Computed example of a mutant assay.
Amino acid sequence: MTGQPDGTGFEVHDPRFSALFAPHIHVERLWTGARWCEGPAWFAAGRYLVWSDIPNNRMMRWDETDGSTSVFRSPSNNSNGNTVDGQGRLVTCEHLTRRVTRTEHDGSITVLADRFEGKRLNSPNDVVVHSNGSVWFSDPTYGILTDYEGDVCEPELGGNHVYRIDPADGSVHQVTGDFVQPNGLAFSPDERLLYIADTGASHLPEGPAHIRRFEVQGDGTLRGGEVFATCQSGFFDGFRVDREGRIWTSAFDGVHCYDPDGTRIGIIRIPEIVANLTFGGAKRNRLFICGTTSLYAVYVFANGTTMG
């Protein structure tokens, strides 16, 4: 299934983007056969990628050593976002069970959060882990709106927010209060900033389709929240930040790259709606991209951070 698909390539909007790839580099399709790919997470020690196929209720695994793809977990409770914590453990957002879990090294599963103030979460969507061990996740309602990616349920909470799980006692703290549908999130390289996508435009004609930028305070709260970038093709979903602070984000036409100053400097065209992406490979300079039905990859002259 590996090959260079039509409709892919680098589109330069600013000279700064030209320095991030070579003319001979091309996008590869590594695998296809999903209904909605999401949540890629790179495991450096094993040289493999895990991602979610939400409607098919499974997680997939791509092995860098031989290029094979297999089912990692099925059923997966309609898993969505995934990441790897500082100890190399898988952290997962599950729509069906409306919880955030951690897969331990022995394969057992620990529930990190499934409620806030006694009420069930909506449907945890995406997740990142801070170097201090705190787990941050978004909780929109996508997994309870239909039976396609979970079970239809009435929300118990009064809104859709981002939460932080305290590493010391496991307590859950709400850190945002004005999002329509919080989605992807990522820290800046120094972890002083947290970027959060709002995909409210998916259900509201005039809803938000942007990424906001917050300052992370010492006590785990957020300050600010100005709009960093507004999507010009659908809406942003999952994204990652490289070591220079550039944002590489999903969109309907591919991966959009933003300089830290907010300028969109280029696009990697993908012939499917892109839901999420992550950096991987030995040098974290390979971008793994979750298209609607397929997993893509491309090498870039940028390196992802070790977290996320």
Rank of each mutant, 00 (worst) to 15 (best):
H13M: 15
D14Q: 02
R16S: 09
R16E: 10
R16A: 11
F17M: 01
S18Y: 00
A19P: 01
A19Q: 12
F21C: 00
F21H: 09
F21E: 00
A22N: 11
A22E: 15
P23S: 02
P23G: 00
P23H: 00
P23W: 01
V27N: 00
E28R: 13
R29P: 01
R29Y: 00
W31A: 08
G33T: 04
A34K: 01
R35L: 13
W36Q: 01
C37F: 00
E38L: 01
P40D: 02
A41V: 05
F43H: 13
A45Y: 10
A45T: 14
A45Q: 15
G46F: 06
Y48F: 15
Y48E: 13
L49D: 05
W51G: 00
W51C: 04
N56H: 13
M59P: 07
M60W: 11
D63F: 12
E64S: 13
T65Y: 11
G67H: 10
T69E: 14
T69K: 07
T69N: 13
R73N: 09
R73I: 11
R73V: 12
S74N: 12
P75M: 10
P75A: 08
N77H: 14
S79D: 07
N80W: 02
N80F: 01
N80I: 01
G81V: 03
N82G: 06
T83S: 06
Q87L: 13
V91W: 04
V91K: 03
V91T: 07
V91Y: 03
E94D: 12
E94T: 07
H95I: 03
H95M: 05
L96I: 09
T97D: 15
T97I: 08
R102P: 08
T103P: 10
E104L: 15
H105W: 11
G107F: 07
S108M: 14
S108D: 13
S108Y: 08
T110K: 15
V111T: 15
A113K: 03
D114M: 12
D114S: 14
R115A: 12
R115K: 14
F116L: 06
G118D: 07
G118H: 08
R120M: 13
N122S: 10
S123L: 07
P124W: 08
P124I: 08
D126C: 05
V127Y: 04
V127I: 15
V128T: 14
V129I: 13
H130V: 06
H130N: 11
N132Y: 04
W136Y: 03
W136D: 03
F137P: 03
S138D: 06
D139N: 12
P140F: 03
